[in-house]
Amino acid sequence: MTENPSTLYAKLLGETARIGWQELQPFFARGALLWVEPGLDLIAVAVALAENDQQTLAGWLQSGQVSKVEAPRAEDLLARDPALWAVVVAPWVLIQEREDAPTQH
């Protein structure tokens, strides 16, 4: 990609949305879902993927911070149906579970 990294980050951030597991199941069936551990910046992973930063991605994959969604995780997500955040970096859909901050009234 030739975009300025901060511009690309902002673009991907703007394309990130909440999504439920039901909508993600077709992507899981195609093997196109990547799980991003909650401690990692979802958008930073998307930027690295878009820029083909193989060294950074390899580190995350090796550490387990980023992984392909496998059947056990899919079954857990189906059972719990948590709030997920997703961003598309074709052909991948990156997903992350995030707990929303509690609202106080």
Rank of each mutant, 00 (worst) to 15 (best):
R73W: 01
Q62Y: 01
L49K: 03
A10M: 01
L40Q: 12
E70D: 14
L57M: 15
W21I: 15
A83W: 05
P72G: 04
L33T: 08
L94W: 00
R30A: 15
Q55N: 05
W92I: 04
Q54C: 10
V36T: 07
V89R: 09
R18E: 13
Q22E: 14
E15G: 11
V93H: 09
L40C: 11
L77P: 01
L12E: 05
A32Y: 03
I95K: 08
A58R: 12
R73K: 14
E3G: 02
I43W: 05
T7R: 14
E99L: 04
L57P: 04
T56C: 03
A44F: 01
Q96P: 12
W21H: 09
E15I: 03
L42H: 03
D53G: 04
W35E: 03
F28E: 07
D100Q: 04
D100S: 05
T2L: 10
Q96S: 11
A10D: 00
L61Y: 12
L13Q: 15
Q62H: 10
Q54F: 04
D76F: 13
W35V: 08
D53Y: 07
P72E: 07
W85D: 03
I19F: 06
I95N: 05
Q54M: 06
L84E: 13
S67Q: 15
S6D: 15
T16E: 02
A46P: 10
R18W: 06
Q22S: 14
W21P: 03
A83I: 14
A50V: 09
A46F: 11
T56F: 05
L24Y: 09
G64P: 10
P26D: 06
L33A: 06
A46K: 13
V66C: 06
R73L: 15
E70P: 01
H105A: 14
L61N: 06
T16C: 05
T103G: 03
I43R: 03
E70L: 14
E3C: 00
D100Y: 02
W60L: 14
L24T: 04
I95Q: 06
Q62V: 05
G64F: 09
L57R: 06
F28W: 13
T16W: 01
N52F: 04
A48N: 08
